[in-house]
Design a protein around this nucleic acid. Structure first.
Lengths: 172, 172
DNA sequence: ATCATATGGAACTGATCAGTTCATAACCAT
DNA sequence: ATGGTTATGAACTGATCAGTTCCATATGAT
């Protein structure tokens, strides 16, 4: 998964995957139909492990969960930057439909969780609308993790967004 | 450029580029050092043409320009989805440093233009902070253009963001 | 200890990759 | 027309690609 994550589908060779897994081609092809299948299963695994982190289900629901989601959702190691799912979106043109379906379904789940957390706060805005915006913001943060802009930059942006969402006007 | 845009660097072959340009390999290599160089020049060309659209320099400066930037910046044809520059960010790990520098510089320019437009409005918030948020939002919109979520979805998100930015509370 | 069954590595397939070479063909000013 | 330049086409590198085959080596049960 980290190899696909960093290099993308096309730039990852079976040789790379052998090295990364320590499993020979024979073993890989015994377990997975082909390279596409292997990628899709990585995507599934990634989303399953992310879901287990439960960033958006901590009680009490509310802004705090959303801030944690934005701050700790995207990864920032040398091998894994941003979100594997968001990165995969850039490759949809060359990925099987299955990948598209998996990502779309996961995004729907996240949006539902976001809505719940927003509803927990008392808000005049439509929770659906806010959830959609937060998700766009999350996608943007993830893809921008590929820049060398440092972590401070990212947290500053998140905190400014949260100030607005929390209704505190006057960011400066 | 459209081929690189849609398929990414690694999944684009010289044969694809011959077909798309109508120029033979000999001609391509006479003009460009290698595939990386060709990609970088595509990126340069893309950003130059985008700059010429002047989405953020129409007078009078203000929210209207920013809304237009968010709505018309990302492309939405079969071959070209989102923004070539944002899509390229996902591939930084396998792209030459030059690509990174070009994108970083262009983003700095856009941020500067965003700040100018925000300053034109009277705002209690820090224009820099708002500009950064708008840019993250733009990146998110671009990468999400790879989803099949339709144009309505995108414009709705933009309009909700603009409502918040314009200070109209109560989106619903 | 023996045999059947998994699991492993290594060699091989044909296709495609980026990049080079070179001979031919088009072109253009004189 | 002619000579010099430039662009083009096609063949050719050596490497790498995804995927397959096959044999040797473990492994496990009896």
């Amino acid at each position: 998964m980290p190899v696909f994550w960093k290099h993308g589908f096309s730039d990852t060779s079976l040789q790379d995957l052998e090295r990364a897994t320590g499993v020979n081609k024979s073993g890989l092809y015994a377990e997975f139909r082909d390279k596409e299948d292997l990628f899709v299963e990585c995507l599934r695994y990634y989303l399953a492990t992310q879901e287990k982190r439960g960033l958006l289900t901590q009680e009490p629901l509310g802004w705090r969960n959303i801030e944690t989601f934005l701050k700790n959702g995207p990864h920032n190691t040398a091998q894994q930057r941003g979100c594997f799912s968001v990165s995969s979106m850039r490759e949809f043109a060359i990925l099987p439909d299955e990948a598209h379906a998996i990502v779309a379904q996961n995004r729907a789940t996240i949006k539902r969780l976001l809505v719940k957390n927003i509803q927990a706060e008392e808000l005049t805005m439509d929770p659906e609308a806010v959830a959609e915006m937060v998700l766009v913001f999350f996608s943007g943060l993830c893809i921008e993790h590929n820049l060398k802009s440092g972590k401070n930059s990212s947290t500053r942006k998140i905190e400014n967004l949260m100030k607005i969402l929390r209704g505190e006007r006057g960011v400066r």
